[in-house]
Design a protein around this nucleic acid. Structure first.
Lengths: 221, 221
DNA sequence: TTGCTTATTGGTCGCACACTCAATAGCATC
DNA sequence: GATGCTATTGAGTGTGCGACCAATAAGCAA
């Protein structure tokens, strides 16, 4: 399955091939981690020879950074689209928390954890991470500011509030590889709770009507 | 410097040698990261041959886990000693925050980030991390509970409060490799602020009299 | 159909890693 | 001072990695 005997080369335009490579690398990054982005691994994925990957990315580190950038940008775009959808800012934020603290976000949590650590050794990646942080902070800050402008939220510094929220989300994401399920919802809710306090909202205002409890243990509020 | 020509073997008791190896590995873990714990690296550190490390730790993964356990335990012991020192719980906690959010803690922040990510691939390490988490949570929970018993703090669930505090600390630690200095103190303070809110304390109650501002930018509270 | 540009291959090199094991020598004990 | 146990060495194995480059063939244009 991995490599059917390929007897015919397929020749693509550099742009297409490059995009394809980055896409494959991003997928591997999300599912298996950035250290699994190797010349051979990505080449296998696309059924080409390792040398080809080297040709497009003479230094693997650049591909790693690109893969992260691609994955993070895509995620941000579905999470906090540039053009604000209609509806209240409050609902907008509530959906944001529902997603970022839900199980569908686990891969992304792991990826952030991954890059935050790997940045220690890879300068190129570190720069990319800083760039994405700015991007995410800006988007979230924008949503907060919009809510303030509408009179839905109240805060002195929308940007600072965004940073604080993201810090808490990072804290929760830290446990993505060591059993997130251990946390009761009273911990998971910490992110939304922080936002509620920061924005002068009543408790639970940013929590969507909860889906049926996953385990049989009931949390009594 | 690394390896003066060693012509004479030094023969030590297995217990001593083992401790020495773990100590060296823990030091490397703290300063350079867990992936730098290799047979050769640790052997060089102790001026012995790689085979010797293999002899004591047939699987490196076990040494890595041991190194983390050693470093984390040592840190916890100075951070939250088992036998509570005299003085108010409030001061105790304040010192805790001063240390965990100060620059002296950066190496430890990096190490936690390191293990949290590496746990993804190394089951033995993951178990060790879970063990340490329990330990830290227990210690911090103990301090909180002590404060509650003395009437200094007020919270429904000391353990839950401890978890929440640790999550925020993890969130701040996430940025250890991507410029912690970027955060204004209003962000760094998030950990203590969370604790203050959780424990029914006034703002700033857990912040020690601050050292002179590091940058020229003044934070107006 | 022919030719030409260049995307793609295949092979190779050097390096770092964990792990194995028979041979060696430190040192406590007698 | 001789002896025996065993901590320590030295040498070697196999794997996977990034990087490099001359040779090849795909597919477009003439």
């Amino acid at each position: 399955m991995t490599s059917s005997v390929q007897r015919k080369r397929i020749r693509k335009s550099p742009d297409d091939r490059r995009a394809e490579i980055v896409g494959a690398a991003a997928a591997v990054a999300l599912t298996e981690g950035l250290e699994c982005i190797t010349l051979r691994r990505i080449a296998d994925e696309l059924d080409v020879r390792p040398g080809l990957i080297s040709h497009y990315f003479p230094a693997v580190e650049d591909l790693v950074a690109e893969a992260f950038g691609s994955a993070a940008t895509a995620e941000l775009e579905t999470l906090l689209p540039a053009d604000p959808p209609d509806g209240s800012s409050l609902n907008h934020l509530a959906r944001f928390f529902a997603h970022t603290t839900g199980p569908d976000y686990d891969d992304m949590s792991r990826l952030w954890l991954n890059v935050r650590h790997l940045s220690r050794y890879r300068p190129v990646l570190r720069e990319r991470v800083l760039g994405q942080e700015t991007l995410w902070r800006g988007r979230l800050g924008g949503v907060v500011q919009a809510g303030v402008d509408r009179g839905e939220f109240r805060t002195e510094d929308a940007n600072l509030t965004a940073v604080r929220i993201l810090v808490v989300i990072d804290g929760l994401a830290s446990h993505a590889n060591t059993g997130l399920g251990n946390h009761p919802s009273s911990v998971t809710r910490l992110a939304a709770a922080t936002a509620e306090r920061e924005l002068g909202l009543p408790d639970g205002a940013l929590t969507l009507p909860e889906p049926p409890a996953r385990t049989s243990t009931d949390e009594q509020s």
